[in-house]
Design a binder for these strands. Structure first.
Lengths: 110, 110
DNA sequence: CACAATACATGGCAATGCCATGTATGTCAA
DNA sequence: TTGACATACATGGCATTGCCATGTATTGTG
Protein backbone atom coordinates (compact mmCIF):
# COMPACT_ATOMS: atom_id res chain seq x y z
CA UNK A 1 0.00 0.00 0.00
CA UNK A 2 1.61 3.19 -1.24
CA UNK A 3 1.22 6.55 0.49
CA UNK A 4 -1.32 8.80 -1.17
CA UNK A 5 1.40 11.36 -1.86
CA UNK A 6 3.46 8.82 -3.78
CA UNK A 7 0.40 7.71 -5.73
CA UNK A 8 -0.36 11.32 -6.58
CA UNK A 9 3.20 11.99 -7.69
CA UNK A 10 3.45 8.87 -9.84
CA UNK A 11 0.06 8.87 -11.56
CA UNK A 12 0.73 11.37 -14.32
CA UNK A 13 4.25 10.10 -15.09
CA UNK A 14 2.86 6.58 -15.30
CA UNK A 15 0.09 7.58 -17.67
CA UNK A 16 2.49 9.52 -19.86
CA UNK A 17 5.02 6.69 -19.84
CA UNK A 18 2.51 4.05 -20.83
CA UNK A 19 1.03 6.23 -23.54
CA UNK A 20 4.52 6.84 -24.90
CA UNK A 21 4.34 3.20 -25.96
CA UNK A 22 1.21 3.84 -27.99
CA UNK A 23 -2.34 5.05 -27.55
CA UNK A 24 -4.50 3.34 -24.96
CA UNK A 25 -7.80 3.70 -23.14
CA UNK A 26 -8.57 4.39 -19.49
CA UNK A 27 -9.70 1.03 -18.28
CA UNK A 28 -6.70 -0.64 -19.89
CA UNK A 29 -4.35 1.82 -18.21
CA UNK A 30 -5.69 0.73 -14.84
CA UNK A 31 -5.00 -2.90 -15.62
CA UNK A 32 -1.62 -2.16 -17.12
CA UNK A 33 -0.48 -0.27 -14.03
CA UNK A 34 -1.72 -3.07 -11.81
CA UNK A 35 0.24 -5.57 -13.90
CA UNK A 36 3.41 -3.48 -14.12
CA UNK A 37 3.39 -2.86 -10.39
CA UNK A 38 2.80 -6.46 -9.44
CA UNK A 39 -0.55 -5.48 -7.95
CA UNK A 40 1.05 -2.81 -5.76
CA UNK A 41 -0.85 -0.03 -7.50
CA UNK A 42 -4.58 -0.49 -7.91
CA UNK A 43 -6.10 2.62 -9.39
CA UNK A 44 -9.86 2.95 -9.33
CA UNK A 45 -11.60 4.27 -12.41
CA UNK A 46 -13.21 7.17 -10.59
CA UNK A 47 -9.73 8.40 -9.73
CA UNK A 48 -8.15 7.95 -13.15
CA UNK A 49 -10.75 9.47 -15.45
CA UNK A 50 -10.60 12.92 -13.87
CA UNK A 51 -6.82 12.77 -14.23
CA UNK A 52 -7.14 11.94 -17.93
CA UNK A 53 -9.65 14.75 -18.40
CA UNK A 54 -7.31 17.21 -16.73
CA UNK A 55 -4.35 16.06 -18.79
CA UNK A 56 -6.34 16.46 -21.97
CA UNK A 57 -7.58 19.87 -20.88
CA UNK A 58 -3.95 20.86 -20.31
CA UNK A 59 -2.99 19.71 -23.77
CA UNK A 60 -0.71 16.83 -22.83
CA UNK A 61 -2.86 14.12 -24.37
CA UNK A 62 -5.64 13.85 -26.93
CA UNK A 63 -8.56 11.45 -27.07
CA UNK A 64 -10.59 9.79 -29.78
CA UNK A 65 -13.56 7.50 -29.53
CA UNK A 66 -13.19 4.14 -31.17
CA UNK A 67 -15.17 0.97 -31.36
CA UNK A 68 -13.53 -2.21 -30.04
CA UNK A 69 -13.90 -5.54 -31.87
CA UNK A 70 -16.74 -6.46 -29.55
CA UNK A 71 -18.66 -3.35 -30.51
CA UNK A 72 -17.97 -1.58 -27.25
CA UNK A 73 -16.96 2.08 -27.31
CA UNK A 74 -13.62 3.06 -25.90
CA UNK A 75 -11.91 6.40 -25.51
CA UNK A 76 -8.32 6.12 -26.65
CA UNK A 77 -5.74 8.58 -25.44
CA UNK A 78 -2.51 9.47 -27.18
CA UNK A 79 0.45 11.66 -26.27
CA UNK A 80 0.62 15.13 -27.74
CA UNK A 81 3.81 17.11 -28.18
CA UNK A 82 3.38 18.79 -24.81
CA UNK A 83 2.84 15.39 -23.25
CA UNK A 84 6.15 14.13 -24.57
CA UNK A 85 7.80 17.24 -23.24
CA UNK A 86 6.12 16.78 -19.87
CA UNK A 87 7.26 13.16 -19.76
CA UNK A 88 10.85 14.19 -20.37
CA UNK A 89 10.62 16.81 -17.62
CA UNK A 90 9.12 14.39 -15.18
CA UNK A 91 11.69 11.72 -15.92
CA UNK A 92 14.42 14.22 -15.14
CA UNK A 93 12.69 15.18 -11.92
CA UNK A 94 12.28 11.59 -10.77
CA UNK A 95 15.88 10.97 -11.64
CA UNK A 96 16.98 13.98 -9.62
CA UNK A 97 15.02 12.97 -6.53
CA UNK A 98 16.14 9.37 -6.89
CA UNK A 99 19.73 10.53 -6.90
CA UNK A 100 19.20 12.32 -3.61
CA UNK A 101 17.75 9.20 -2.02
CA UNK A 102 20.50 7.11 -3.50
CA UNK A 103 23.01 9.38 -1.77
CA UNK A 104 21.13 9.32 1.50
CA UNK A 105 20.56 5.60 1.47
CA UNK A 106 23.90 4.33 0.34
CA UNK A 107 25.51 1.98 2.79
CA UNK A 108 22.46 1.79 4.94
CA UNK A 109 20.37 -1.27 5.54
CA UNK A 110 16.87 -1.38 4.10
CA UNK B 1 11.54 23.15 -10.49
CA UNK B 2 9.85 19.98 -9.22
CA UNK B 3 6.12 19.35 -9.50
CA UNK B 4 4.28 20.02 -6.29
CA UNK B 5 3.19 16.38 -6.18
CA UNK B 6 6.78 15.18 -6.25
CA UNK B 7 7.74 17.67 -3.57
CA UNK B 8 4.83 16.47 -1.43
CA UNK B 9 5.79 12.83 -1.91
CA UNK B 10 9.46 13.36 -1.15
CA UNK B 11 9.28 15.71 1.83
CA UNK B 12 8.61 13.21 4.59
CA UNK B 13 11.01 10.55 3.28
CA UNK B 14 13.70 13.23 3.02
CA UNK B 15 13.14 14.42 6.57
CA UNK B 16 13.16 10.87 7.91
CA UNK B 17 16.25 9.99 5.91
CA UNK B 18 18.23 12.98 7.10
CA UNK B 19 17.19 12.45 10.70
CA UNK B 20 18.28 8.83 10.46
CA UNK B 21 21.78 10.27 10.34
CA UNK B 22 21.26 12.03 13.65
CA UNK B 23 19.04 14.64 15.25
CA UNK B 24 18.70 17.98 13.55
CA UNK B 25 16.66 21.15 13.60
CA UNK B 26 14.22 22.58 11.10
CA UNK B 27 16.20 25.39 9.61
CA UNK B 28 19.20 23.11 9.10
CA UNK B 29 17.00 20.55 7.35
CA UNK B 30 16.02 23.16 4.80
CA UNK B 31 19.65 23.95 4.07
CA UNK B 32 20.66 20.32 4.02
CA UNK B 33 17.98 19.45 1.46
CA UNK B 34 19.02 22.41 -0.66
CA UNK B 35 22.61 21.22 -0.53
CA UNK B 36 21.85 17.55 -1.17
CA UNK B 37 19.64 18.41 -4.13
CA UNK B 38 22.09 20.78 -5.72
CA UNK B 39 19.63 23.64 -5.16
CA UNK B 40 16.83 21.76 -6.95
CA UNK B 41 14.73 21.63 -3.79
CA UNK B 42 14.25 24.86 -1.90
CA UNK B 43 11.86 24.34 0.96
CA UNK B 44 10.50 27.38 2.70
CA UNK B 45 10.27 27.34 6.46
CA UNK B 46 6.53 27.96 6.52
CA UNK B 47 6.10 24.75 4.58
CA UNK B 48 8.46 22.58 6.61
CA UNK B 49 7.46 23.43 10.17
CA UNK B 50 3.86 22.23 9.79
CA UNK B 51 5.24 18.99 8.35
CA UNK B 52 7.51 18.52 11.35
CA UNK B 53 4.62 19.27 13.71
CA UNK B 54 2.46 16.68 11.98
CA UNK B 55 5.21 14.09 12.03
CA UNK B 56 5.73 14.65 15.72
CA UNK B 57 1.99 14.51 16.36
CA UNK B 58 1.93 11.16 14.56
CA UNK B 59 4.74 9.83 16.70
CA UNK B 60 7.41 9.46 14.03
CA UNK B 61 9.78 12.03 15.50
CA UNK B 62 10.36 13.72 18.82
CA UNK B 63 11.63 17.20 19.56
CA UNK B 64 13.69 18.84 22.27
CA UNK B 65 14.67 22.44 22.69
CA UNK B 66 18.36 23.12 22.93
CA UNK B 67 20.58 26.14 23.04
CA UNK B 68 23.13 26.58 20.28
CA UNK B 69 26.65 27.86 21.00
CA UNK B 70 25.58 31.36 20.08
CA UNK B 71 22.82 31.32 22.66
CA UNK B 72 20.06 30.90 20.12
CA UNK B 73 17.28 28.37 20.80
CA UNK B 74 16.76 25.54 18.38
CA UNK B 75 14.25 22.71 18.27
CA UNK B 76 16.03 19.49 17.52
CA UNK B 77 14.12 16.57 16.06
CA UNK B 78 15.08 12.92 16.32
CA UNK B 79 13.64 9.72 14.86
CA UNK B 80 11.41 7.62 17.04
CA UNK B 81 10.87 3.92 16.57
CA UNK B 82 7.79 4.53 14.42
CA UNK B 83 9.81 6.96 12.34
CA UNK B 84 12.42 4.32 11.60
CA UNK B 85 9.66 1.95 10.63
CA UNK B 86 8.06 4.60 8.41
CA UNK B 87 11.39 5.26 6.75
CA UNK B 88 11.82 1.60 5.93
CA UNK B 89 8.29 1.43 4.50
CA UNK B 90 8.82 4.51 2.41
CA UNK B 91 12.15 3.30 1.09
CA UNK B 92 10.46 0.12 -0.07
CA UNK B 93 7.69 2.12 -1.70
CA UNK B 94 10.10 4.39 -3.54
CA UNK B 95 12.02 1.38 -4.63
CA UNK B 96 8.89 -0.28 -5.94
CA UNK B 97 7.79 2.74 -7.94
CA UNK B 98 11.31 3.29 -9.21
CA UNK B 99 11.36 -0.27 -10.49
CA UNK B 100 8.20 0.36 -12.48
CA UNK B 101 9.69 3.43 -14.09
CA UNK B 102 12.92 1.59 -14.72
CA UNK B 103 10.94 -1.01 -16.62
CA UNK B 104 8.96 1.57 -18.53
CA UNK B 105 11.94 3.69 -19.36
CA UNK B 106 14.51 1.11 -20.29
CA UNK B 107 15.85 1.52 -23.78
CA UNK B 108 14.16 4.83 -24.27
CA UNK B 109 15.90 8.13 -24.71
CA UNK B 110 15.62 10.71 -21.97
C1' DC C 1 -31.89 -13.74 -15.55
C1' DA C 2 -28.74 -12.17 -12.27
C1' DC C 3 -24.19 -10.96 -11.42
C1' DA C 4 -19.67 -9.60 -12.63
C1' DA C 5 -16.65 -7.31 -15.56
C1' DT C 6 -15.91 -3.76 -18.74
C1' DA C 7 -16.01 1.25 -19.75
C1' DC C 8 -16.67 6.03 -19.02
C1' DA C 9 -18.44 10.52 -16.62
C1' DT C 10 -18.71 14.07 -13.00
C1' DG C 11 -20.82 16.80 -9.01
C1' DG C 12 -19.37 18.21 -4.97
C1' DC C 13 -17.18 18.83 -0.70
C1' DA C 14 -14.05 17.19 3.07
C1' DA C 15 -9.60 17.49 3.80
C1' DT C 16 -5.37 19.86 3.92
C1' DG C 17 -1.22 21.92 2.08
C1' DC C 18 1.17 25.67 2.75
C1' DC C 19 1.15 30.70 2.09
C1' DA C 20 1.23 34.81 4.40
C1' DT C 21 2.26 36.72 8.33
C1' DG C 22 4.03 37.35 12.94
C1' DT C 23 7.72 37.06 16.52
C1' DA C 24 12.42 37.14 18.14
C1' DT C 25 17.50 37.10 18.19
C1' DG C 26 22.27 37.20 16.26
C1' DT C 27 25.51 39.29 13.00
C1' DC C 28 27.69 42.69 10.54
C1' DA C 29 28.67 46.62 7.85
C1' DA C 30 28.39 51.46 7.47
C1' DT D 1 23.62 52.61 16.65
C1' DT D 2 20.94 51.40 13.38
C1' DG D 3 19.29 49.05 9.38
C1' DA D 4 19.37 45.02 6.76
C1' DC D 5 19.78 40.32 6.47
C1' DA D 6 20.19 35.66 8.08
C1' DT D 7 18.70 32.59 11.42
C1' DA D 8 14.85 30.16 13.76
C1' DC D 9 10.27 28.83 14.85
C1' DA D 10 4.92 29.10 14.94
C1' DT D 11 0.22 28.93 13.07
C1' DG D 12 -4.47 30.74 11.44
C1' DG D 13 -7.05 30.14 7.78
C1' DC D 14 -8.82 29.31 3.40
C1' DA D 15 -8.32 28.46 -1.59
C1' DT D 16 -7.53 24.57 -3.87
C1' DT D 17 -8.34 20.07 -5.34
C1' DG D 18 -8.18 15.07 -5.11
C1' DC D 19 -11.02 11.65 -5.68
C1' DC D 20 -15.02 9.31 -3.60
C1' DA D 21 -19.52 8.11 -4.35
C1' DT D 22 -22.63 7.56 -7.56
C1' DG D 23 -24.75 7.10 -12.04
C1' DT D 24 -25.11 5.09 -16.79
C1' DA D 25 -24.58 1.54 -20.25
C1' DT D 26 -22.95 -2.69 -22.55
C1' DT D 27 -20.99 -7.35 -22.81
C1' DG D 28 -19.89 -11.78 -20.96
C1' DT D 29 -21.26 -15.86 -18.38
C1' DG D 30 -23.07 -19.41 -15.51
Amino acid sequence: MLTKELVAASTEPLVLSILSGGENYGYALIQEVKRLSGDKIEWIDGMLYPVLHRMEREGRIVSRWAEAENGRKRKYYALKKDGKKALQDQRKQWGAVSEIFKQLWKEQYV
